[in-house]
């Protein structure tokens, strides 16, 4: 499990909007995994841990609501020494576009892009058909493209 910490931490942070929420999600997931460790079927520990985290993320409505109502503060959360290179404005727009994605879409995008998982791995981890992974990925990218084109907006919609 300790070996998985870096990728779990990265995935948690890629799902949530802030460092605090990311660490919260990581800790909740570890707690959950430890409490439920009897249910681990002996398959891939990584897939199991990732699916626990994804489910916690997807179903934690409190966290989701906070994320949606909080002002966008992502870029500032990354200490400047860690900040990735690139035009800060462009990055900020991309962050806003990602933040507008519904949890299911965001999870798929992050598993594919950041965690470099194959579509099949993502499908089995989320227990959805591979076709659904593809359609979520397609729609996530279409939405990002739309928002980058619209060239503005920080999503502030209330959870409904």
């Amino acid at each position: 499990m300790l070996d998985l910490m870096p990728s779990l931490r990265r995935y948690a942070r890629s799902l949530t909007r802030s460092d605090v929420d990311g660490e919260d999600l990581l800790q909740d997931s570890l707690e959950r995994a430890l409490v439920k460790r009897g249910q681990w079927s002996g398959g891939s520990l990584k897939a199991w841990a990732f699916s626990i985290m994804t489910n916690l993320y997807r179903n934690d409505t409190a966290r989701a609501t906070r994320r949606r109502t909080a002002p966008l503060d992502d870029a500032q959360d990354v200490p400047s020494t860690l900040a990735p290179p690139g035009d800060p404005l462009e990055r900020r727009k991309l962050v806003a576009a990602i933040d507008s994605l519904a949890p299911d879409f965001r999870a798929v995008l992050m598993l594919v892009v950041v965690e470099s998982m194959s579509y099949r791995e993502v499908a089995s981890l989320l227990q959805i058909p591979e076709g659904t992974v593809m359609s979520r990925l397609t729609r996530a990218r279409a939405q990002i493209a739309r928002i980058l084109e619209a060239d503005n907006v920080i999503p502030m919609r209330r959870s409904e």
């Binding site: 910490m5 870096p6 931490r9 942070r13 430890l34 990055r91 991309l94 892009v113």
Partner: peptide, 26 residues
């Protein structure tokens, strides 16, 4: 975009000194 997103979160793929304790203490 893939590259930008990867860069965005790459710095978080770290272990922290408290990680082992986190797992053990919990």
């Amino acid at each position: 975009q893939n590259a930008a997103i990867r860069d965005m979160f790459a710095p978080y793929a770290t272990t922290r000194p408290e990680d082992a304790a986190l797992l053990a203490v919990q």
